[in-house]
Design a protein around this nucleic acid. Structure first.
Lengths: 270, 270
DNA sequence: TTTAACATCTTGTCTGACAAATTCGGAGCA
DNA sequence: TGCTCCGAATTTGTCAGACAAGATGTTAAA
């Protein structure tokens, strides 16, 4: 019947939905534009799905898909029985593709992380609470424990660094570092698995961690920053010393259907 | 008839969908878990929507909503007539709420930006190409021009800093700084509009910018880092000196329908 | 072998219905 | 009057079935 609403229906607001990309995408874009143009202010209720469907000359399904996109984008929230509302605090999002990790992209990420971790260590030395200091100590002990148990200790290593970031008492540091951790997780796993076979490397790592911890414990901000900088420079060096191993492992993972031993998806975070 | 699939239907894979959050959310989560557990490898085609609906004991609508979420999350892509596929390079995303900016949250963001901008300046001094250097120079000239024209110069100021980040030749720096720029845009606008009325402030800013530019031009990495650090510390000082003004302006903006001119939903591409 | 038409499959959109939760107004009562 | 409680109306969430639009693979023809 109205399989051709684009010709028969007169939408009171805009031209008929043109052929092109996804219809629901167009609608989502137009809604987004309308919201950001201030047609509805923060926290205000949007028209009902039925009303929006009539306004744009489309079915409720498409309206729902469009609103679903905006909801995923953090621009609106919906409450069953009540309606959909413009979000009180719209969000921006930063996205990072996770390709098959190559040395180059890992190095670039580390380059960004270094100043962040250094600053986090500095702030942690100034601001850490006693309980946060305890947590850092425990995390460091966990690394030893894991390594002695024959594990790679990667998760524990990341937890150590995360505990420091938390002690900086600025949530943006943990947020950004967590964000890039998801990228680094796999690469670090490969490298450290390799490292863990070499005792000298592990001894270095332990000593460097200890230096950071000591500086944070005594509240020496500059020493903490220096120790962190040293640690991260050495980490990059260690990474570069095993490039062939890294690439081989990555290569090997691409072939088969990737049984992907990670299985840590829900592991450390959830 | 089967309005009660949660009791009558035996899903071959999991327990019946429990009462709780959104059904489509649960399904999206389980699909996401399955993908990251390697059930389908990168680029592989997912089961059809009908098949997934049967597997989870839900209707196609819910499957579609769930897949829509994953699509928005960059985890899958869909092609009409062909199917839905696991993304070749899955993405992780970092999200940041943009509330009514208060001094505290602005300071926290600046605290994170500082080490990043300092490092970017250092890298820019080492790596900038001649054309990148030209672009930084032009951006700096644009600030003067805008200020003399009576504008706030905020956009040009951000462009200057962005040009430096670009000259670091590491895309992660521009990505993260752009990300937080969207948060700071409004706050900076308010503050600088205020600053621009005070010539002393503008003279300071110009001098500090000049110092950064000179260091980058001569390739002195440490001097560039120092100059950037100084600039950002002073910027924070200037910000703190006008807290009452900032808060008043923010307060005033909450009333009307808040014509926010920035940012788009799915990104800057469309 | 190459090309063109066809059958089939899959996602996108439309329609209609009911379930579940919220909102609002009025009945009843103190 | 002011308050509580209950039911009707409203609105999003889910279900079901259908067709449109595009992709894929097969078959028939040249």
């Amino acid at each position: 019947m109205n399989q051709e609403p684009r010709t028969s229906r007169v939408s009171e607001n805009t031209e008929p939905p043109s052929r092109g990309p996804q219809l629901s995408e167009q609608v989502a874009q137009r809604l987004s534009d309308a919201i950001q143009a201030g047609e509805w202010s923060r926290g205000a209720r949007l028209p009902t799905e039925a009303a929006l469907g009539e306004r744009f000359g489309i079915s409720r399904s498409v309206v729902r898909e469009a609103i679903s996109m905006l909801r995923n984008g953090g621009l609106v929230t919906s409450r069953r029985g009540s309606g959909s509302f413009v979000a009180e605090a719209p969000t921006v999002s930063l996205r990072l593709a996770i390709p098959d990790p190559d040395l180059q992209s890992v190095v670039e990420v580390l380059e960004l992380r270094r100043p962040l971790e250094v600053e986090a260590a500095r702030l942690a030395a100034e601001r850490r609470t006693p309980s946060q200091l305890r947590r850092i100590r425990n995390a460091m002990a966990d690394i030893d424990e894991a390594v002695e148990a024959g594990l790679s200790g990667v998760d524990q290593d990341l937890a150590f660094h995360r505990a420091i970031a938390e002690a900086a008492n600025n949530s943006h540091f943990t947020a950004v570092l967590d964000f890039y951790n998801r990228f680094l997780h796999q690469a670090i796993r490969v490298t450290r698995t390799n490292e863990s076979l070499r005792d000298t490397f592990m001894q270095q790592v332990v000593a460097e961690h200890q230096a950071i911890l000591d500086a944070i414990a005594t509240g020496d901000a500059e020493a903490a920053a220096r120790a962190a900088a040293t640690h991260l420079e050495h980490a990059e060096t260690r990474l570069r010393q095993a490039p062939t191993d890294l690439l081989e492992r990555v290569e090997a993972q691409r072939g088969p259907a990737s049984v992907s031993s990670t299985e840590s998806t829900g592991g450390n975070s959830r």
